[in-house]
Design a protein around this nucleic acid. Structure first.
Lengths: 118, 118
DNA sequence: TATCTTTGCTTACTAAAAGTGAGCAGCTAC
DNA sequence: GTAGCTGCTCACTTTTAGTAAGCAAAGATA
C-alpha cells in the first residue's frame, strides 16, 4: 500500500469496471436524474438535458432499459404516449450520483474559486 | 418531485456534469486506482489495467495531470525514469470510487446471482 | 561485440461512437 | 389547411477509441 490514504484493495478494479460499463459516459446519470426530477417524456428529457441529441438520447434510453434501470411504457392512444420512468433499482445508484454531484460542486469551486474571490 | 426516493434537487445536474467532464470514461478512475495501489510507472500501469492501450493511457494520464489529479515526474538518468503519482486532491474522489465499486459489486451479484445460487 | 529486452511513449491506420440536420407518421390546435 | 408537437430514425460528418507497429536510449544476456 502506497503512502496515500486511499488504500484501495485489489478487488476494487473489477467491481469498478463492472460499474463503469453500465454507468460511464456523459449522459446516463444525467438522464436518470432527469427522469427522477419529473421528466418522463422523450422530448421533455431531451429539453431538460442541454446538449443531448435525439439520437443519443434514444440510444441511452435503450441501454438504460436493458440494464433494468428504467422502464419504457407505451400508452396506446390516440395520441400514443410514451413514458419513461426510473425503476426502484436505479435508486441504488443514488450514492454514486450524490458522490459525483458533491465532488463536482467542490471541484468547480476549486477551479473557479480563486478567480471569483473578493 | 416524483414518487421515487431520489428527490434530486434541480442543481444536481450542473454539478454532476462538472464531475462527469473530469471523471467520466472507462479509464480515468481505473488509472487513479492503479496509481493508488502502487503502480507508478507507465508500463506498470499499462499492465495493471487489462485492455488499455499505450495510446489511450498516455492521453488519459495527460488529462488527469491537467486536472491536477496526478503528477508526472521525470528523474533524469540515465536511465531516465518517469513516475506518476496521485496528488492528495485525488483522494477527494474516494467517495465516488467507493460508491461505484460498491454498486458494481452489487450489480454483478444481481446479474450473475440468480444463475450462481446453489 | 551482438542482440535481445525494457521503458515511455508516438505515429499511422481502422473501427466505433458521438454529434448534426433533416425528416416522417400520427395526431392536435388554430 | 397549415402549423405545431411527439417520438423517434436516417444519412452524413466529426470526434474518439482501439490496433499494430516502431523508435531512441539504456541494460541485461551471451
Amino acid at each position: 500500500m502506497p503512502a496515500t490514504s486511499m488504500g484501495h484493495c485489489l478487488t476494487t478494479l473489477p467491481s469498478l469496471r463492472d460499474a463503469l460499463e453500465v454507468v460511464s459516459g456523459k449522459w446516463k446519470l444525467l438522464i436518470l436524474v432527469a427522469l427522477a426530477t419529473g421528466h418522463q417524456r422523450f422530448r421533455d428529457i431531451e429539453r431538460s438535458i442541454p446538449g443531448i441529441s435525439s439520437k443519443v438520447l434514444a440510444k441511452e434510453l435503450k441501454d438504460l432499459e436493458q440494464h433494468q434501470l428504467i422502464r419504457r411504457t407505451v400508452q396506446e392512444g390516440p395520441p400514443v404516449l410514451v413514458t419513461y420512468e426510473v425503476l426502484p433499482y436505479a435508486d441504488s445508484l443514488d450514492p454514486v450520483i450524490f458522490a459525483l454531484r458533491d465532488w463536482g460542486k467542490n471541484h468547480r469551486k476549486k477551479i473557479m474559486g480563486p478567480a471569483v474571490e473578493a
